[in-house]
Each structure stands twice: as structure tokens, then as C-alpha cells.
């Protein structure tokens, strides 16, 4: 076997497994399991400066290679809010009021970011905090950025399904 192939296989074998990040709103109605890709050690945590996120203290993360599974106990107790370009939907637990995820449907595909404030098993030191200002960004650029950076493997199911 070629040396480079051997090295590639070795690096794959030694690569740590994906990190399973668990989180939920306070009452547990909206639970998330975020499979963070192996090798991506730091978790970006972007404090968005938009009018909604400032008021909600929203701090978001995503990785295009992550996988997100959202489990909703009672879908009737989830409300949705959109504003501005109305291209992003905030999922708010209407029992406790936490906002664990934001989704954006682009060309019939669902993308998401997750609020790091709902994480339960991640040490704060592994979060790479920054602020993010997308004010004035054109809609097309905004959607293209989400397609590049947001989580592209998103499954949302309710426990009654």
C-alpha cells in the first residue's frame, strides 16, 4: 500500500470520536443532541449583535459537518418567531421560554444553529467566544453564509411521532 494511504488510514484510526453535546431548554420540552465532528476541538460561540439576540443573550454555534437531532416532547408548547428578512425561525419553548435553536430553510433544506447557553455537558473553556455582526448583509449573502456554516444535518422529531 502507498505510504500516503497508510498515513491517511492511521490518522483516521487515531482520530478521536465525535463529541456528543447534550442540551435542553429548562423544562426539557426541547432537547438537543449535537454530534460535533471529530478533530474540531474548539466550539465557536458567537454572540450575535442583532436586535433579537441582544435581547435574548443568544450565543450560537454551528459546524457544517455536525449533526443535530432535536427531540420535542410537546410540539404544541413550541412557539416560532421570525423578523426582519424572516429567513430564520427562532424556536421558543412556550413552557419555560428558552430558545435552544434557530433554523433556516433554504432551497427545501433545513439548516440550524444551536444556543450554547442550553448545553449541559460542555466545559465553558472549550467555547471560543466572539461577537458576530451581520447587520446590513444582503439576503442572498446571508443565505449562502448559512449554507456554508450552519449545521446541514438537522432532524427534528416529536416524541409522539
Amino acid at each position: 500500500m502507498h505510504v500516503r494511504c497508510m498515513n491517511l488510514i492511521k490518522s483516521r484510526i487515531s482520530m478521536p470520536p465525535p463529541v456528543q453535546i447534550h442540551g435542553k431548554c429548562h423544562c426539557g420540552n426541547i432537547a438537543i443532541n449535537l454530534e460535533w465532528p471529530a478533530g474540531a476541538q474548539e466550539i465557536p460561540a458567537r454572540a450575535c449583535t442583532c436586535s433579537f439576540c441582544v435581547k435574548h443573550g443568544g450565543v450560537w454555534t454551528s459546524n457544517p459537518n455536525a449533526r443535530l437531532a432535536v427531540t420535542i416532547r410537546d410540539p404544541a408548547l413550541v412557539s416560532h418567531y421570525a423578523f426582519g428578512t424572516r429567513t430564520a425561525t427562532f424556536h421558543i419553548c412556550s413552557r419555560c421560554g428558552a430558545v435552544p435553536i434557530v433554523t433556516s430553510e433554504i432551497a427545501n433544506h433545513l439548516y440550524a444553529v444551536v444556543n450554547v447557553n442550553v448545553f449541559e455537558n460542555i466545559d465553558a473553556s472549550s467555547l471560543r467566544r466572539s461577537s458576530a455582526d451581520f447587520e446590513g448583509e444582503a439576503v442572498e449573502s446571508r443565505l449562502a453564509r448559512r449554507q456554508r456554516n450552519w449545521i446541514a444535518d438537522v432532524r427534528i422529531r416529536s416524541e409522539s411521532d
Binding site: 423544562c27 412557539s79 418567531y81 421560554g97
Partner: peptide, 19 residues
């Protein structure tokens, strides 16, 4: 929303969810 010993309640807007 109130929890724990339920001495406080957190009030929010039902539309935009802001606390």
C-alpha cells in the same frame, strides 16, 4: 415560568419570547 421552590416567576412576551 416558575420552578424549584416557586418563590419567583419569570415573565416573558408570548410573541417574541423576550424575558
Amino acid at each position: 415560568y416558575a420552578w424549584g421552590d416557586k418563590s419567583l416567576r419569570f415573565v416573558r412576551c408570548a410573541t417574541c419570547g423576550c424575558i
